[in-house]
Amino acid sequence: MRDFGGIVERSPVRVVRPRSAGEVARAVREAAAQGLDAVPRGLGHSTYGQSLTAGVSIDLRELTGVEVGGRHAVAAAGTSWREVLAATLPHGLVPPVLTDYLDVTVGGTISAGGVGGTSHVRGTQAENVLALDVVVDGGEPVVCSPAVRPGLFDAVRAGLGRHGVITRATLPLVRAPERVLCCTIPCRDAADVLRVQREVRADDMSAQIKPSDDGGGWTYEVKAVLHGDGAQPPPGTTDTEELPYFDFCDRMRPDVEELIRLGEWARPHPWAMVFLPAPRAAAVIKATLADMTPADLGRSGVILVKSLRVGHVPMLAVPDDPVLFSVLRTASPGCASAAEMLAANGTLLDRTRAVGGTRYAVDSVPA
């Protein structure tokens, strides 16, 4: 069995596909009685075997369903964010933070942390949770929240399943816009990207670094997305596109379909994702890019930069004023090998730790 990273492979003793919290609890109890690890797995979008085990794999993809009531939704852990949106948007509501890629699960991203375009304002998905249903060690199902078992609540959010299996999440909802204005702002370098992300007010914010067309360097651009009618492009905008809100949320689907067609989606993905302290981020990004060529990134690789706010998520170790720097490599034919990309990820981790940064633990950095 592999995950999305396609680098680590493990064979579980058995795979359990529960359809209820009770079946999850039974699987955890039986694994404990046999001295086996029980590891939850959603859509397996981790990149270095974090969702794999040689014990009991608890495949949560059949534990699905969403109920919307008032300004909150209750979603089973195996529900994808696409399915959450399908349930909430008819009510004109949406979770405060969505991942850029919708085909990952509620339980999986809350267990990891979950960063999205609105995280510079609203924090991570792990912060935007009202309550969780969890099966703890020994197979006991319990409910936790900031007021009920707060220690467990803090341990399972961004806890990578080590302190319990999330079976259901109660999520806050906010008003969804009908349309958005997507604005592209070219930047000179990484420092300029961070300046724009700090100074421009936008509802959704991200940045991408791409190989330049002449192959002689890198180009930098910020995507600032404004919600609602009548929005005015920020200073420096060179291109705009107006989209229905759901089309914006699902913007990755055409690209993913093309990557699947080309075979790139199935190739190894040695991803490096690190949290850098904002005052030192530009220097680390510059040094990393100086060591890279497009072949070190892969044909479908992507580099992202995202300033964010984390709030109270104790299990998610980040520096003050964090910047998420993501080098999302693909080991394409004719490019650097997966082993070479992993070695480069290790170098980035060394640089990150040297300036007081941390790694995002769903990445492919050999620690």
Rank of each mutant, 00 (worst) to 15 (best):
F153N: 03
D154Q: 13
D154I: 07
D154L: 08
A155E: 11
V156N: 03
V156H: 01
R157D: 13
A158Y: 00
G159C: 11
G159D: 06
L160E: 11
G161A: 09
G161C: 12
R162Y: 14
G164M: 10
G164I: 11
V165D: 02
V165P: 01
T167M: 04
T167E: 01
T167Q: 01
A169K: 07
T170H: 10
L173W: 04
V174G: 03
R175V: 15
P177Q: 09
E178D: 15
E178Y: 04
R179A: 12
V180I: 10
V180D: 01
C183Q: 01
C183F: 01
T184F: 00
I185M: 05
I185F: 04
C187L: 09
R188V: 15
A191Y: 04
D192I: 07
L194M: 11
L194I: 11
R195E: 14
V196F: 04
V196D: 01
Q197S: 06
R198K: 15
V200P: 04
R201S: 14
A202R: 00
D204K: 04
D204E: 11
D204A: 13
S206M: 11
A207K: 03
Q208F: 14
K210V: 15
K210S: 13
P211D: 05
S212R: 10
S212K: 05
D213F: 14
D214H: 07
D214L: 09
G216I: 05
G216N: 08
G216W: 03
G217D: 07
W218D: 10
W218N: 09
W218Q: 12
T219L: 13
Y220S: 04
Y220E: 04
E221A: 15
E221Y: 12
K223M: 15
A224R: 02
A224W: 02
V225L: 08
V225G: 00
H227N: 08
H227I: 05
G228F: 12
D229L: 09
G230P: 09
A231V: 06
A231P: 00
A231S: 12
Q232M: 08
P233E: 03
P233W: 01
P235F: 06
P235C: 08
G236W: 00
T237K: 06
T240R: 03
T240L: 07
T240P: 02
E241M: 13
E241R: 15
E242V: 15
Y245T: 05
F246K: 02
D247W: 05
D247T: 14
F248N: 02
D250I: 06
D250V: 03
R251K: 12
M252P: 00
P254H: 02
P254G: 10
D255H: 11
D255T: 11
V256S: 01
V256H: 07
E258H: 11
E258P: 01
E258C: 04
E258N: 04
R261L: 13
